[in-house]
C-alpha cells in the first residue's frame, strides 16, 4: 500500500508498504530517517519515540497505515522543531529533515577534529546540547528516544522536579549511563530554558 504523511515538516510518501510494517520501519528503511532506534519493537524501551501529531509515542507500535495524513517529528527534526517552538511558541512544523545514513555517508564518517562537538555548524535543540554537555550520551542508542521524550516533557513542564523527570522518562531504557547524567542533562536543559525565558 501507499502511505503519505508529514515528517519533520516535509511531506513524505512510501510505496509498496507491507501492511504489517510499523511507522518505525517506514521511517528507517523507506524514508532515510534511521535516527529513531529499533531496540525492542514491543514498546518496552522508548528508543523509537517520535511525536505523532505532537504526542510522544513508540513508533514501533504504530502501524504505518495509521499514520496516513498525519504529522510526525523525529529526532532528526528535533532541532528545527525546538527552534520554531522558541520563535513562535507551541508546536511548529519543521523544515525539511536531514536524510538518513547511506552506506557512503557511513563510510565517510569520522569523528570531527578537536572540540567541534560543542556546536559549530550544527544547530542543536537545547535538550540535545544539554545531553552532550552533561555526559548523558554513551553508546547513544537510547538517546534519540530520550531526547524526544525529554523535550516534550520540558514543553509541558518547564520546571520539573526530579520525580517528574523520572516519571516522564520511565518509558525510556538506557543501559549505559545509570541515568544519572541523563537527569543532569534534563535539569541543565530546564535551567537553561528558564534563563532564556527570563532574558
Amino acid at each position: 500500500m501507499r502511505v503519505s504523511f508529514t515528517v519533520n515538516g516535509r511531506p513524505q510518501e512510501a510505496d509498496d508498504v507491507w501492511e504489517g510494517e510499523s511507522l518505525l520501519y517506514v521511517l528507517r528503511e523507506r524514508m532515510g530517517l534511521p535516527g529513531s532506534k529499533n531496540a525492542c519493537e514491543q514498546g518496552e524501551c522508548g528508543s523509537c519515540t517520535v511525536r505523532l501529531d505532537g504526542v510522544p509515542v513508540c513508533s514501533c507500535l504504530v502501524a504505518a497505515g495509521q499514520v496516513e495524513g498525519r504529522d510526525v517529528v523525529t529526532v532528526e527534526g528535533l532541532a528545527d522543531f525546538a527552534e520554531q517552538r522558541a520563535e513562535h511558541g507551541g508546536c511548529a512544523s519543521a523544515a525539511p529533515g536531514s536524510c538518513g545514513t547511506s552506506l557512503d555517508a557511513a563510510r565517510r564518517w569520522e569523528a570531527r577534529p578537536a572540540d567541534s562537538q560543542t556546536g559549530g555548524d550544527t544547530a542543536l535543540a537545547p535538550i540535545q546540547q544539554a545531553f552532550i554537555d552533561a555526559g548523558a550520551v554513551q553508546c547513544g542508542f537510547c538517546t534519540p528516544g530520550l531526547l524526544v521524550a525529554a523535550d516534550e516533557m520540558l514543553e509541558r513542564n518547564p520546571t520539573p522536579t526530579d520525580a517528574d523527570i523520572r516519571e516522564a522518562l520511565s518509558g525510556n531504557l538506557c543501559r549505559c549511563t545509570g541515568y544519572e547524567k541523563i537527569m543532569d542533562a534534563v535539569r541543565l536543559a530546564a535551567a537553561r530554558q528558564g534563563e532564556a525565558a527570563r532574558r
Binding site: S22, Q42, G43, L61, A63
Partner: peptide, 19 residues
C-alpha cells in the same frame, strides 16, 4: 493504539488477514 496488536505482528506471533 496498536500497543498489543503491533507487538504480535513485530514478533511474528500473528498474521491477521485484515487489520
Amino acid at each position: 493504539g496498536g500497543t498489543d496488536v503491533m507487538v504480535e505482528i513485530n514478533f511474528d506471533h500473528r498474521r491477521p488477514e485484515y487489520l
